[in-house]
Nucleic acid binder design. Structure first.
Lengths: 195, 195
DNA sequence: GCGAGAAACTTGTCAATGTCAAGATTCGGT
DNA sequence: ACCGAATCTTGACATTGACAAGTTTCTCGC
């Protein structure tokens, strides 16, 4: 069984996981289908059979990402009723799966009409926002409150992954998220004012 | 009379502006140096003389972006003392210059050792955060408050540009920013804070 | 006003990439 | 065992980023 078989066996999964690894290590710009094929040990045209093209591969990765995000979110909701924990889980997911996170929010790289992508995204959104907030979706104040929470953790995750945060932010994203999110919906120290 | 001269005259600026246009229209993935050269009417190797390579071109675009962000921020600070206006200016900049914004926070695409880039980024940061907040940088609460504001507007801008926001968010980013940012530093539903 | 050197731009070339087409090998059901 | 289908390979082509070397224009000292 050590001889490389004609059929890889699980090429689709191997390519997806290798794609995530390459993006994390070298960035999405240096991602090459032929290089991926080389790493996995198949010919340069093999990926095309599982994913139509590069866009298809990234779309599949994004679908996997939304599934993972839904799982992270559901797990956090089980552990606690606090909505804050869902936000922490959002950042935790982004840091644990940076390649997935990067691809999920780049429509230009994806096949946005893909049925799996649409379904996975919708499912992730349903897991993220509590049922109550969805029922009160018409309420403008409730909507902007949800958007504020989303924007805060999304921005924090993006800035963290880009290495844009100052040194004082520390080295634990989870702790940072709790500290930063405390300023939402809660009276805290007065806002920084211009001198 | 309009015979193309050997020297373009302002090739560097023309390439930068065309780069921004292409990114806005087709996404950064489809950006090609040769295509840019074709659009501007020069040979395929001309860009290399102004920008070492593709990374150099994008780095120059990021520098331009940080300069623009600094200008937006300074203008907002002149109009009002309210720190909220700086956040609104942040989103306004991102929506007005989406290509610049996209490139500025992608270290994988840039030459992060570039002196101009480092200087422009630092200057933009100085314009964004009020002097008072910087002096009190050691204060943890003040730091997280600033990060909360930054993360909120950054995340909101990113989600807006990605088209990730729900329909209920409206079509005016500035109005949305004010509505969403109102949940920061404002007493609302009490929330247990740990940090 | 002129000549040398630098700057701006061109042409030519090369390896690498994404994608398509066509052939080879293996799998699965009957 | 057999046949269609799924999986993978080889081959080919246009396009790209980057490099090298040549050509045209500008600049500046004299």
């Amino acid at each position: 069984m050590t001889r490389a078989p004609y059929h890889h066996g699980d090429l689709r999964r191997a390519l997806l996981s290798e794609t995530a690894k390459v993006i994390e290590e070298s960035g999405i710009a240096h991602l090459s289908l032929r290089d991926l094929a080389r790493r996995v040990g198949v010919s340069h045209a093999a990926p095309a059979h599982h994913f139509r093209d590069k866009t298809g591969l990234l779309t599949a990765l994004a679908v996997e990402g939304f599934d993972l995000l839904a799982a992270f979110s559901a797990a956090a909701r089980e552990d606690s009723d606090d909505f804050l924990e869902v936000g922490v889980a959002y950042v935790r997911f982004a840091v644990a799966h940076p390649a997935h996170f990067e691809v999920m929010f780049r429509p230009g790289l994806l096949d946005n009409d893909d049925a799996d992508l649409i379904a996975a995204r919708q499912m992730a959104r349903a897991r993220l926002f509590p049922p109550a907030a969805q029922a009160a979706g018409e309420d403008s104040a409730s909507l902007t409150a949800g958007l504020a929470a989303w924007a805060l953790v999304h921005g924090l995750a993006a800035l963290w992954l880009n290495g844009a945060l100052p040194d004082g932010a520390g080295d634990d994203p989870e702790t940072l998220t709790r500290a930063v999110a405390a300023h939402l919906f809660a009276r805290s120290n007065p806002q920084p004012s211009s001198g």
